[in-house]
């Protein structure tokens, strides 16, 4: 494999989630986390999963990553059933989950070193390419604790993109950042996605963030986790989180979310 073919964009994968249910056993008894969830994500689509906590959106993301198995139903990525974690589906976490015992470069190399078919020199070049892509080539040899929260998430993004996955899974990656950093990362993520078009499933509880980033916003409701509504966001990119058109979408999604919550609550009271 040459560097050129390695950096070539792989065909993004289609995701097919069919009738997935999941139960957890906790100390307080069984919890019905997901109920009959079906979702199609097309190749190269950016889908945001939104909902209050306990709606199972992170659980679904973990299942797509192969970190958890569904109780019922089937998950298929790129035509292949999901049986476990794979480099084709990389994940980003809310805490960056970067390894503090490695420097920035070492972290990006970690995912590449596990990828066969590359020479060490090629791995280095690939790692440098992705660090440039996220704008951190100057911090290659910095320690993780020296980075700001936003920089950490950029490194995490570089590390997730480095093995050239076909799907990128993001679990509230910007939730712990300050508003200013977050806004900058919205822009950067859209730019990077325009360059390396992977299928992205992005979990958040921030409605505005979802409307800004997603081609489609999927609304979940909790107890048990269900898909309630889907919104197509027809806005040109790159999108500005502060734009009026975007705010209109966010308001619409927010009121839908509130409507479902109130309806569910009333149902519970009866």
């Amino acid at each position: 494999m040459t560097l050129e073919t390695e950096l070539q964009i792989p065909p993004p994968a289609r995701l097919a989630i069919a009738n997935v249910s999941k139960w957890f056993t906790t100390s307080r008894g069984p919890v019905h986390a997901l109920d009959q969830v079906s979702l199609q994500v097309t190749e190269g689509e950016f889908v945001c999963l939104v909902g209050p906590s306990g709606c199972g959106k992170s659980t679904l993301l973990n299942m797509i990553a192969g970190l958890e198995m569904p109780g019922q139903g089937a998950l298929v990525a790129g035509g292949k059933p999901i049986k476990g974690p794979s480099r084709e589906r990389m994940m980003m976490f809310q805490e960056s989950a970067l390894f503090p015992w490695l420097d920035v470069f070492g972290n990006v190399m970690f995912s590449l070193k596990r990828k066969p078919g590359l020479s060490d020199a090629e791995r280095r070049e690939v790692a440098e390419y992705y660090l440039r892509l996220v704008g951190l080539e100057k911090f290659m040899h910095a320690n993780i604790h020296e980075l700001s929260g936003g920089m950490k998430q950029r490194v995490a993004l570089a590390r997730a993109l480095a093995p050239n996955p076909r799907v990128l899974l993001m679990d509230e990656p910007f939730a712990a950042l300050d508003a200013l950093t977050r806004e900058q990362l919205y822009g950067d993520l859209q730019k990077i996605w325009a360059k390396r078009k992977v299928t992205i499933v992005f979990v958040t509880h921030n409605v505005r963030e979802a409307a800004c980033l997603g081609d489609r916003v999927v609304l979940f409701s909790p107890h048990p986790g269900r898909i309630r509504e889907q919104f197509k966001i027809d806005l040109p990119r790159p999108r500005d989180i502060n734009s009026v058109a975007l705010a209109a979408y966010a308001t619409k999604i927010m009121s839908a979310l509130k409507g479902h919550l109130i309806a569910d609550h009333a149902e519970g009271q009866e």
Binding site: A65, G66, L67, P85, S86, R87, R89, M90, M91, F93, E95, A97, F99, F110, S111, R114, K115, R159, P163
Partner: peptide, 18 residues
């Protein structure tokens, strides 16, 4: 060890002895 390291590692193809 923060369990998230293990999860992150497993998505990057590191499990078992590695």
């Amino acid at each position: 060890v923060n369990p998230i390291y293990i999860r992150a590692a497993s998505t990057m193809g590191s499990n078992g002895v590695h």
